[in-house]
């Protein structure tokens, strides 16, 4: 996966996190994962299609989920059900993906995003099959570390190589 994707991804994610959680994301150390890997307990999977294809999996610990949903649902006088909390994190993933997609468009990659899929559970193993994942951790004060597991293939390159 190319380095030129990283800045738009980090920028897109940081902007949304700043607006939604009023938190400054600090970029942690990048690492590569093999195609099969375990994640934190709560995962939002967003498909990316277009000039880049693959997905971004946002991984959160249970503590992060609780802190984030509390912040995002703060103004609403509603019972916080599991369904509402799940939807809240899914929407955060969706908004980050939209923002990332806009940033990627500004560096020449036109992409679309799919509705998010949520995967919850301890020691879940997720396989991205043929595209290795780059792990981009974003540390947020008060909300913990969000891991962006990015598996993207450049369609132009893939087509040229075929």
């Amino acid at each position: 996966m190319k380095a030129e994707f990283i800045n738009p991804i980090v920028k897109g994610a940081s902007e949304v996190l700043k607006t939604v959680l009023q938190a400054e994301a600090k970029l942690g150390s990048l690492s590569a994962r093999p195609t099969v890997f375990t994640t934190k307990e709560f995962n939002v999977v967003c498909g990316i299609t277009g000039s880049l294809s693959g997905q971004v999996i946002y991984s959160f610990s249970t503590d992060s989920v609780n802190a984030i949903s509390k912040s995002m649902l703060g103004g609403l006088d509603l019972e916080t059900t599991d369904e509402l909390v799940t939807s809240t994190l899914a929407e955060l993933g969706n908004m980050i993906s939209g923002s990332v997609s806009s940033q990627l468009a500004s560096v020449g990659y036109t992409c679309d995003i799919t509705p998010p899929t949520i995967i919850k559970g301890k020691e879940v193993t997720i396989s991205t099959v043929d595209i290795p994942a780059l792990v981009i951790p974003l540390d947020l004060p008060n909300f913990g570390t969000i891991e962006l597991n990015v598996s993207l293939k450049d369609r132009a390159v893939a087509t040229a190589a075929a």
């Binding site: 609403l76 509402l84 939807s87 809240t88 899914a90």
Partner: peptide
């Protein structure tokens, strides 16, 4: 909106 969160937020 497909997200319950967004529907309740907008409704509010």
């Amino acid at each position: 909106d497909d997200a319950l969160f967004m529907r309740v937020t907008l409704k509010n």
